[in-house]
Write a protein that binds this DNA or RNA. Structure first.
Lengths: 180, 180
DNA sequence: GCGTCCATGTAAATGGTTACATGATTAT
DNA sequence: ATAATCATGTAACCATTTACATGGACGC
């Protein structure tokens, strides 16, 4: 999904400024699969304007640049629906942590364990946050995606715990050697 | 991870041609987190050559371009180790399927169910392939990453099955209406 | 004083995808 | 016949990241 479609996806749920779009992509329910910086959002919004897929209104503020509230147009909704009609591409997972652990033999001693502990902690936090989210009002699509996400994150935490011993064998050996 | 580091990661496990590097990234144990086309691999290899991180030997073949077998140098190994010493960036998951399902309300009727079934099937196949893989000879890092991957894919298949009903409510309603 | 939140935007640099160019062999 | 496999590489294009530019308010 390019940033233009991402923006339409946010705006179809309600009007927002560029700044707010970024926040929603970071904190909202889409946060898990999307990311975009200002350097891609603002130009994307510019292109959407040019194509008539969004309109905007300026709200002047004191001591700050004018806030531009964007709103999706009927054409924008049509374009978004069209984008949704494509075949979805294959999922892509980029995990530098797992890449590094894969090459554990080339890592400094103990580094794999460090990476893995941070990894587990990251997902433990995300899973905890998701567990307390209230989705009673949310549409089916939101609840489905949330459920899949939560299952994945819990599976990661669980799997890391179950397999961590694979990476600490040399540490254990050292510990044993010290005991003697 | 940029493609240069990916190439070094493949070559550190054994010499290979550009073509073979791509195959290993697609089929090998790294396939889950990496992807690279020829358009990025060949230039990357060129840069690695220029920096002295790999050497190569040409093997002439009949009816085909000469095959260039690349081998990592000591400098290359050092550079790879250095790349592994960085802090790993956050994982990034790009899932157009889940993005689309999130916006189920804007999808054509029945389309969400189609996407979800294909999604489940994709991961069911990957999970099956992983379950039969033989890793008895593999180093700890490989086994760890494999185990995490397998857990994730199984969790997805499972979670899709448990939550599919969320998306077929309107279908059920239609079925009920037809029965009457 | 320092960091963070608010708020917009541009420009350069990076990096990757896609399409093209070439062409023999083998399997369906 | 047609597609896939093997094999390399370039060039145009596209998108995104990063850094820069500006600046007030507010909490620590």
């Amino acid at each position: 999904m390019d940033v233009k479609t991402l923006c339409l996806g946010v705006l179809i749920r309600g009007e927002a400024s560029g700044y707010e779009i970024k926040k929603q992509l970071e904190e909202g329910p889409l946060a898990q699969f999307c990311r975009a910086g200002f350097g891609s959002i603002y130009p994307a919004l510019g292109q959407l304007k040019a194509k008539g897929l969004v309109t905007w209104s300026e709200h002047s503020q004191e001591g700050r640049p004018d806030k531009k509230i964007y709103r999706i147009t009927d054409q924008g909704i049509a374009a978004f629906r069209k984008a949704l009609r494509k075949e979805p591409s294959d999922d892509r997972v980029h995990s530098e942590s797992l890449f590094m652990i894969f090459f554990q033999g080339f890592l400094d001693s103990g580094r794999a364990a460090e990476i893995v502990d941070a990894y587990r902690e990251t997902y433990r936090q995300i899973a905890t946050r998701m567990r307390v989210a209230d989705l009673t009002e949310a549409p089916a699509g939101h609840r489905f995606v949330h459920a899949i996400g939560q299952s994945i994150y819990e599976a990661i935490v669980d799997a890391v715990e179950r397999n961590r011993h694979l990476l600490s064998e040399d540490v254990d050996k050292k510990a044993l050697a010290t005991e003697k």
